[in-house]
Design a protein around this nucleic acid. Structure first.
Lengths: 203, 203
DNA sequence: ACATTTGTCAACCATATGGTTAAACTAAAT
DNA sequence: ATTTAGTTTAACCATATGGTTGACAAATGT
């Protein structure tokens, strides 16, 4: 494997903390529970990551860095907007089906602590959408796609891909779907979402 | 006013609890803080609502019942699908601009406790989308709109309207928008969203 | 072989927190 | 005026929780 997933105590703790923090959120997570999950003494958590706050930050940044680069890569790739929309929808949905707690975790904690986003922006690899913006504006000017601002289109792409996971419990209720049926629906969305978006903008 | 917003201690407590619970979530909210917000002694909370859990449930149901009937009304109205999409987008966005913590609160707590949705389904006024489903199927059969399942369309409508609020901190970061600019963007979405959806499905 | 650093743990600590209690206050009912 | 029921409060309680400590073991260096 290229990314070294080493078996250090730090990593062991981080994985356990991810599990618990992502399921329960910062406030409801318990240090003891994380220690149990990692199979170590509670004091070890403080030995390796001083405080709950710092452990949380490590988890959050690690989680964010799993998602952000994907977005960045796709948005800055040398492909048409249509391909970008198709790639992102397909990749993102595949990825989140494997990590179902991730988007909700990030969104949730960012709402709890909105200033934290400034922290993330400073990091390298923070998604930059300027190329995407330029492309959208060009295509609108050329009359290839309907008039829409790049920002609105971007929000639409994100919404259609992310919300179905975050709002899953609610949507399952509204649609009266069980987990199995809902998962199939998500599989279909890998292509349905991009078709929908492209139909909306293509002239 | 038609809806009696009485000044009873119960209501006073409920409003204070809404404020705190919606901002911080169940786990991070403190009973003392709610008491302070309501300007009363902490024991009063337990006098009127036995426990934190029960107070939380009262807040949650009250919050949910502010949103659900709107959806229900619009979806079951005697209007075309296009009108439903326009009405919902416009009404929902207007409403949430006034109650910015609501959607995140509901989504968040439903994720924390997915079985709770069963509780809600039992309540009267739980949104029923059968009429909407039937309409979509008809229009697809008539060739008025592109082939799409009612479920996927429903998810898309919900996603495009709700996510921009829940994901606001993240989206503000990506777009590099301040609160003011973002709010204007949301105002524009009252019509942009429905145009987008209708373009996507209309043949 | 010895000393030093690093890692691990059980026990402990201070504080925060949800919840209780018993007494006091209020206002209507008798 | 006295009783009664409902309301409000300060003080208190038990427990949970993040964090610390001091002893001890395992590496690591010399």
């Amino acid at each position: 494997m290229t990314t070294e997933e080493q078996n250090t105590p730090e990593n062991n703790i981080l994985n356990a903390a991810k599990e618990i923090f992502q399921k329960k959120g910062m406030a409801a997570a318990r240090m003891q529970e994380i220690a149990d999950e990692a199979g170590i003494n509670k004091a070890m958590l403080h030995y390796y990551y001083r405080s709950k706050e710092l452990l949380f930050e490590a988890v959050f940044k690690s989680a964010f860095s799993m998602l952000a680069p994907q977005l960045n890569e796709i948005m800055n790739a040398d492909t048409t907007i249509f391909e970008k929309i198709r790639n992102f929808s397909s990749n993102y949905i595949s990825f989140v089906l494997k990590h179902p707690y991730l988007p909700n975790f990030i969104i949730q904690e960012l709402n709890r602590n909105p200033e934290f986003v400034k922290n993330l922006i400073a990091e390298k690899n923070f998604p930059n959408i300027s190329k995407f913006k330029q492309q959208v504006n060009e295509k609108v000017a050329e009359g290839v796609i309907r008039p829409i601002t790049a920002e609105q289109l971007f929000i639409n792409i994100m919404s259609l891909n992310i919300f179905p996971f975050i709002g899953a419990p609610l949507l399952k209720g509204f649609l009266n779907f069980d987990d199995e049926a809902y998962k199939k629906l998500m599989e279909n969305r890998k292509t349905e979402v991009s078709d929908f978006i492209i139909n909306a903008i293509k002239i």
